[in-house]
Amino acid sequence: MAAPLISVDHVDLSYGAKAVVRDVSLDVARGEVVCIIGPSGAGKSSLLRCMNLLAPVSSGRVLFDGLEVSPKAGEGRIDQRQLARRMGMVFQHFELFPHLTIRANLTLPQERILGRGKAEARERADALLERVGILAQAEQYPATCSGGQQQRAAIARALAMDPEAILFDEPTSALDPEYGAEVLAVMKSLAAEGITMVVVTHEMGFAREVADRVVVMDAGQIIEQGTSQQVFESPSHPVTQRFLRAVLRG
């Protein structure tokens, strides 16, 4: 097997005395789609945030393409700004910049960070907005768009940086179901394209259908993982069984 793109190696994350991630190790291969599921407060989002330094690990380490993810750049390491060019993130609450139009949300980072020219950035932005179905909203401000449109714009903003991987932190949790479906459709098309994705989600349908691997977390630890078939059809851990019964009921 090739070296993993993202490698979480015995990571702990605590805030004061509160341990939110406890000795977690997880490898994500290039092109793999990993869904992280589990009860609220299991540490799923915290684990994701460890991967891109939004929550610097308390101990252990995270490697991206063999480089240690670290607050400080250096030999064999990758800092947040370098990592940003290779891995994007999509947030639960979109976090589009409200003072910029949808298009400017996509062009500003391209121009400032990748150094693309105005015309090139705009061309790329519009191609991506068309792809996620919101080119008509390019001139609008985020607040005038639906949640589903905003989240699709946020995905397009991440894609505009040509990332090798994208982290999704509960991308549909703040959305009404019909808008969530639009977003999931976009994510499904990304998965089919082979971009590496780590998705914290409560969308069991999406996890079951799209994930190459499903990881179940509880109380800061990975309690079970496997193909979606293994995890959904024959979960082995009692917490997984109880969790799936609760969320799949009805």
């Binding site: 947040q80 700004r81 940003a84 994007g88 993130m89 976090e95 400032r112 960070i113």
Partner: peptide
């Protein structure tokens, strides 16, 4: 979340 989004896009 706004500053986090900006940081993970690579803004200093």
């Amino acid at each position: 979340g706004q500053t986090e989004a900006a940081r993970v896009l690579g803004f200093g």
